[in-house]
Write a protein that binds this DNA or RNA. Structure first.
Lengths: 124, 124
DNA sequence: CAGAATCCGTATCGATACTG
DNA sequence: CAGTATCGATACGGATTCTG
């Protein structure tokens, strides 16, 4: 994390923190991962992310769109088609996200061991 | 983000995703930043992170402890003292977190521009 | 000092119904 | 197809009180 001089991070309403909150939540990361392989349509994303409701998908896509991470393009066919894709800004997020994701892949075993130790300790 | 072969990421109950949810939430990142400068006592952290309640602080510290990110050490003085510190595992999170944080520092202006554009569009 | 326990309002979420 | 609108359940956060 940032060194001490970045004490701004410790303020709850720091803009960077608020931004992280909007980008790093559960569904955002999953949508991000899906769209990184290319544009997708609304129901296509919904099928890919089993478990998400259309409400949650709409809300999350709107937020990502508002923050300039994904682009929304309406195709005026009948029935209508809406295609979502990553913006250039969104694509630049790939590297930091990937680093974080790979940390979990590498360290998950150690985390799971820690959990077992903790749970056994707290059981008594 | 991970390439397509990491399709596991798209499953909602993927262990890596669940882990990210536990580590990347609002207060965890702030506590993480605070402890990176050295061990701290309970109320010391509380004072540093203005705005956090005891309840939230306790809950978050417990979760970080359970995941092996922070260590809890009781000093049997009177009154009691409890010191929290980063584990080796926790310290290894610094790099990926920092990368993400620096992305927000660099790209926040562009995000804010995108927000203004979006808000103006949706106003009409 | 470092918490555990409790109460309570609200923000969030899923399910459902409806629409251009 | 791609949403919007609504409603009830509930998970969650904050404030408060109490304790070793």
């Amino acid at each position: 994390m940032a060194p001490l001089k970045h004490r701004v991070l410790q303020v709850a309403d720091c803009p960077s923190r608020l931004l992280l909150d909007e980008l790093a939540d559960k569904w955002s990361v999953l949508i991000f991962a899906a769209l990184n392989d290319g544009p997708m349509r609304f129901n296509e994303i919904k099928r890919t992310l089993e478990g998400i409701t259309q409400k949650a998908l709409t809300q999350t896509l709107r937020r990502l769109e508002r923050n300039g991470i994904v682009a929304r393009r309406v195709v005026e066919t009948s029935p209508i088609a809406v295609e979502y894709s990553m913006t250039t800004l969104g694509k630049s997020l790939k590297k930091p996200f990937k680093a974080l994701y790979e940390w979990t892949l590498v360290n998950l075993p150690e985390v799971e061991t820690a959990r077992q130790v903790f749970d056994i300790k707290s059981a008594r």
